[in-house]
């Protein structure tokens, strides 16, 4: 799934015209842009932020930022990429403001041993869990792990974009993603992540 299908499905010409109308201050055009993209951004935020209300707030705030920053958008780049970048930055800022940032995930990821997966176990895990369970497991992951997976496998961001958003070296993104996959597997197969997370967050659920 790429951004073009997760976000509004406007063609380039229509979008360019709409954006130019928004820049000239046409409120109808702004409303149309919002209607086209707000649902996708809400879904995106919903996958990143723990509560539905947070995602609602974030959607509104992201579009306020979009309105303010639209002048900085480079029309030679895809609009959806820019939009998701604004959204992911906002969500990451939101999560960073929270008190339960995991100290564990700030530096120790490289040193944590990764068990080599058993392909058959991996396939069984995939077969046994529904999408809803995966999403539940995802919600239990540390913020950065969840961010990495959503940015990569939902918003289809490049490693460079993920590195930029999360403030890490590009070479570290692969480690983050692999670590996040392992944490998700643990969460789905028996709550290992929840325990690790609890320990890192000083007992906060």
């Amino acid at each position: 799934m790429d951004r073009q299908t997760t976000a509004g499905a406007m063609n380039d010409a229509d979008l360019a015209q709409l954006l130019s109308q928004v820049r000239t201050g046409e409120s109808d055009a702004w409303g149309e842009l919002y209607r086209q993209y707000a649902p996708a951004i809400f879904r995106f935020c919903r996958r990143l932020l723990p509560a539905r209300e947070d995602a609602e707030d974030a959607t509104t705030e992201i579009f306020m930022k979009v309105r303010q920053k639209l002048g900085t958008y480079d029309a030679s780049r895809p609009f959806t990429a820019w939009l998701y970048k604004v959204a992911s930055n906002h969500c990451w800022d939101t999560l960073r403001r929270r008190r339960i940032r995991q100290d564990l995930e700030t530096g120790d990821v490289d040193s944590l041993p990764l068990e080599h997966p058993d392909p058959s176990q991996l396939e069984r895990l995939q077969a046994e869990h529904t999408s809803k369970e995966v999403r539940t497991g995802l919600a239990q992951l540390p913020d950065r792990a969840r961010m990495a997976l959503v940015l990569r496998y939902y918003a289809d961001m490049s490693y460079e974009e993920i590195a930029d958003t999360l403030g890490v070296r590009r070479a570290f993104v692969g480690v983050l993603l692999l670590r996040a996959r392992h944490q998700l597997r643990d969460a789905l197969s028996g709550g290992g992540v929840a325990n690790a997370r609890k320990a890192s967050a000083g007992g906060t659920p």
Binding site: M1, T6, G31, A38, S131, K132
Partner: peptide, 22 residues
């Protein structure tokens, strides 16, 4: 599998999100 799980839409869009620009 991850992409498919993330792509599933299991929640409605809240009225507030839709209503705001109106």
């Amino acid at each position: 599998w991850l992409r498919e799980a993330l792509a599933v839409e299991d929640e409605s869009i809240p009225a507030r999100v839709i209503a705001a620009p109106e």
